[in-house]
């Protein structure tokens, strides 16, 4: 029995490594294809966005969470449910702005960078920028326009990885004319 259980966790770990390695191969390829790090960052963000708009459906179907009443609740769901579900980590939420429209996600360890070292020649590459795109895309599908960006990154020598999230506005549904 215990051996079986062991194997289960082993295979789970393996499949998250599959994602990590695949992501690494993708970033490497993009660095070859694009000339500047900024272009790579942009491309990663765009890909993340495309993933986010689809991932939200999977998330809602799997997680069974209901509507969030405010941005604080959204932050909680992102950190405790979404990150846990897809990356197996639970970032902590800190640094709320007084107005309650900005907060930080602190990632103690970021599974995307498990096997990564940034070479000096790519100092302005935001390696995990995909995540920002995913967050932006997913939240847009639930009527929230947000801005997400990395402000600290362990790859660049910071102690933790920090994603700053800012609420921009609520996206109003545009109902087709004549429908209520």
């Amino acid at each position: 029995m215990s051996r079986q259980a062991n194997r289960g966790t082993e295979s789970k770990k393996m499949s998250s490594e599959l994602f990590t390695l695949t992501y690494g191969a993708l970033v490497t390829q993009l660095c070859k294809d694009y000339e500047s790090d900024e272009d790579v960052n942009k491309q990663l963000d765009r890909m993340g966005y495309n993933i986010g708009v689809r991932l939200i459906e999977d998330f809602l179907a799997r997680s069974n969470v209901g509507r969030c009443h405010d941005f604080r609740e959204t932050a909680d769901v992102i950190a405790k449910v979404a990150f846990k579900m897809y990356l197996g980590i639970t970032p902590s939420i800190t640094n709320w702005s007084p107005a309650g429209d900005e907060f930080s996600l602190i990632l103690e360890n970021n599974p995307l960078v498990d096997f990564v070292e940034l070479p000096d020649s790519h100092s302005s590459l935001i390696y995990s920028n995909l995540l920002c795109g995913v967050l932006r895309g997913a939240l847009e599908m639930v009527q929230m326009a947000v801005e997400a960006k990395f402000v600290q990154d362990t790859l660049k020598g910071d102690g933790v990885t920090e994603i700053r999230m800012r609420f921009l506005r609520r996206i109003e549904d545009n109902l087709p004319a004549g429908e209520e």
Partner: peptide
């Protein structure tokens, strides 16, 4: 953990990303 969905979506993006730039 449901990271399978994540891998599938990433793979799709890789394919379309590579083809879009070509």
């Amino acid at each position: 953990m449901a990271d399978e969905a994540l891998f599938l979506l990433l793979h799709n993006e890789m394919v379309s990303g590579v083809y879009k730039s070509a």
